[in-house]
């Protein structure tokens, strides 16, 4: 089927793109590490997506993420709105979306029409984001692929109390020096991050549909740690990294069943 819209999510660590058809299915996608010249990279991604599904220049493009205004798309929409829309596409109902990305963690309350009811984001520092784990795990010489296996393979949780990335890094070094097991420390780091995200999420209603997206959702140990903190394990949406780009594509296409936010003034 023909492409009807393209969504680009120009994030802080990766650039993601999708093309969707009129059934709102992803027919082409890509994920690349972000390059310094985002406008150049985005145009290349758009061209590649157009080429892969034979889409002409009339297929609209929406951009989201930090670089959204530099993409040169038909519309720029914030990642909050796009993530809500993208996640709603998978769930079809109201819920709470936890998106843990490289630079930001977002807790988005999605309404029954896929709209944003409320949202919270981490403050400026890296505590509570994917970067927190990434920095420390790299410091410990563990590959990101191995992390989940190691964490899930241990019963020990070595408590890491610092939430600041820089502080936690030094705390981990001293824990290792005291002879604490590496896997237990890794698990402790997951718990620390989960607690931080839990604080951001605040008190959740018990019956709320809890879903998760973002690159960190690919780490099954982190999903479990969040489950322990929040009292229930979030469902990870399919292709969690693409949710923002998918939402952007849906919002610019006509297949969107939800009224999209536009710049027309609201009657007062």
């Amino acid at each position: 089927m023909k492409a009807v819209a393209i969504g680009i999510d120009a994030g802080s660590t990766t650039c993601k793109g999708v093309a969707i058809n009129s059934n709102a299915e992803i027919i082409a996608s890509l994920v690349q590490p972000v390059e310094p010249l985002i406008e150049v990279q985005a145009q290349r991604c758009i061209a590649e997506l157009r080429q892969r599904c034979g889409a002409g220049n009339n297929v609209p493009v929406a951009a989201t993420g930090y670089g959204r205004k530099r993409v040169g798309a038909d519309r720029a929409i914030t990642e909050i709105t796009c993530h809500a829309r993208g996640a709603f596409h998978h769930t079809g109902k109201a819920g709470v979306l936890i998106d843990v990305g490289g630079q930001d963690t977002k807790v988005i309350h999605v309404g029954s029409r896929g709209e944003v009811v409320d949202f919270a984001m981490n403050d400026k520092c890296a505590a509570g984001t994917g970067r927190f784990l990434e920095v420390i795990v790299q410091r410990l010489g563990v590959s990101l692929e191995d992390v989940a296996k190691r964490v899930e393979g241990t019963d020990r949780i070595v408590k890491v109390s610092s939430t600041c990335t820089v502080f936690a890094e030094s705390e981990v070094v001293s824990l290792l020096a005291q002879g604490e097991p590496l896997d237990g420390i890794l698990r402790g780091l997951h718990t620390a991050l989960a607690n931080r995200i839990g604080a951001l999420a605040g008190r959740l209603k018990p019956d709320v549909d809890l879903i998760m997206s973002g690159g960190v959702a690919l780490n099954s140990a982190m999903v479990k740690a969040l489950g322990t903190t929040l009292g229930r394990t979030p469902r990870v949406v399919p292709q969690p990294q693409l949710v923002g780009a998918l939402g952007a594509a849906l919002l610019v296409s006509f297949v969107s069943e939800v009224p999209s936010p536009s710049s027309t003034p609201v009657p007062m």
Binding site: S161, S162, T163, C164, V166, F167, S170, E171, V173, S174
Partner: peptide, 11 residues
């Protein structure tokens, strides 16, 4: 609040 304490640095 020990979460704002940098063990290594202080030590």
């Amino acid at each position: 609040d020990p979460r704002a304490f940098s063990e290594e640095q202080v030590e």
